[in-house]
Simulated scan of single mutants.
Amino acid sequence: MKIIDLTHNISNNMPVFLKDEKPNLKQVNNVQDDGFSQTLLNIYSHNGTHMDAPLHVIENALTLDKMDVSNFMGLGIVIDCKDLVNAKEKIIDISYIEKNRINVEKAEFLIFNTGYFHKWGNKDYFKDYPILHENLINYIINHKKKGIGIDLMSIDIISSENLPIHNKILKNNIVIIENLTNLDRLGNDLFEFYALPLKYENSDGAPVRAIGIIR
Rank of each mutant, 00 (worst) to 15 (best):
K2S: 12
L6D: 01
H8C: 02
S11I: 08
L18H: 13
L18A: 13
D20I: 01
D20K: 14
L25W: 04
N29V: 06
V31R: 14
V31T: 13
Q32C: 03
D33L: 11
D33W: 06
S37H: 05
Q38Y: 12
T39M: 09
L40F: 05
S45P: 02
H46R: 12
G48Y: 01
H50P: 00
L55K: 14
H56D: 02
I58A: 01
E59S: 12
L62V: 13
D65A: 09
S70F: 05
N71M: 11
M73V: 11
L75I: 09
L75S: 12
D80Y: 02
V85L: 06
E89N: 12
I94R: 02
K99D: 10
R101H: 11
R101Y: 11
R101F: 10
I102V: 14
N103R: 04
T114M: 11
Y116T: 06
Y116W: 15
Y116S: 10
Y116F: 15
W120I: 15
W120N: 07
G121L: 15
G121Q: 08
G121C: 12
K123R: 15
K127Y: 14
K127R: 14
L132N: 10
L132R: 01
N135W: 05
I141H: 09
H143E: 14
K144I: 02
K146W: 02
I150E: 03
D151F: 02
S154N: 10
D156F: 11
S160T: 10
N162R: 07
N162Y: 10
N172G: 07
N179R: 06
T181M: 08
R185P: 00
L186K: 10
N188T: 11
N188E: 13
D189E: 14
Y194L: 15
L196P: 03
K199D: 07
N202F: 07
S203V: 01
D204L: 10
G205M: 07
A210K: 03
I211T: 13
G212E: 07
